[in-house]
Computed example of a mutant assay.
Amino acid sequence: MKKYLPLYEFLCASQKESIRFTFLEIENILESRLPQSAYIYREWWANGGHVQADAWLNAGYQVETVDLVTHCVVFSKCSKS
C-alpha cells in the first residue's frame, strides 16, 4: 500500500461523506501516475482484492462510482453495520 499511502492519508483526514476526484487529482495526491489499467479497467477500482483498494477501504471509504470516460471516481464513507 506504500504507493497509495498519500491517498489513504488524504481520505483519513477528510470529513466528507463522499468525495469526487478526477484521476489527475488522485495522481497529484500520489505524486505519481496511476497505472494505465486504472484508465481502462473498471475492475481496477473494485472495493477489495488489490493494494489500491486497501488504501481507500482502510481509510473508511469505498468506490461508489467510477467513470472511465470522464476519468472520475466518487468515494463514499463505508456504512457502519
Rank of each mutant, 00 (worst) to 15 (best):
F10T: 13
Q52I: 08
S76R: 15
M1C: 02
V66P: 03
K80M: 12
E43Q: 11
S81A: 08
M1G: 10
S14L: 07
Y41W: 11
W45R: 10
L34T: 07
K80S: 15
V66N: 06
C78S: 11
W56P: 00
R42K: 13
K16H: 10
L11E: 06
N58E: 11
A55Q: 03
E31Y: 12
V74D: 00
R20A: 10
L30M: 07
R33M: 10
Q36R: 10
V66Y: 04
Y39H: 15
L7I: 01
S32R: 14
S76Q: 12
E9D: 14
A46I: 06
L5A: 15
S37P: 00
E31L: 14
Y39F: 15
D67E: 02
I40D: 08
A38L: 14
T65K: 13
S79I: 12
T70H: 11
E43V: 08
L68H: 05
Y61G: 00
L68V: 11
L30Y: 05
S14D: 03
R20G: 06
P35D: 06
C12V: 13
H71T: 04
E25L: 07
H50R: 14
S14V: 02
D67Y: 01
V69A: 13
I40G: 01
C12R: 15
Y41A: 11
Q36G: 10
N58T: 01
F23Y: 14
L57K: 05
Q62H: 04
H71A: 04
G49P: 05
L57D: 02
N58Y: 09
S14P: 01
T65D: 12
I19G: 01
E31H: 13
V69C: 10
V63T: 05
L68I: 09
Y4W: 15
V69M: 09
I26L: 14
T65Q: 13
A55L: 09
L34A: 12
S81F: 07
A53Q: 10
Q62E: 15
K2P: 00
T22G: 03
G48N: 14
E17I: 07
C78L: 14
K77P: 00
K2G: 10
G48F: 05
P6E: 10
V73I: 15
E25V: 09
K77S: 03
Q62A: 12
P6Y: 10
T70R: 13
S79W: 04
W45C: 10
E25G: 03
Y8M: 08
S81T: 05
Q36Y: 12
S14K: 07
F21L: 05
F21M: 04
A55W: 02
L68S: 07
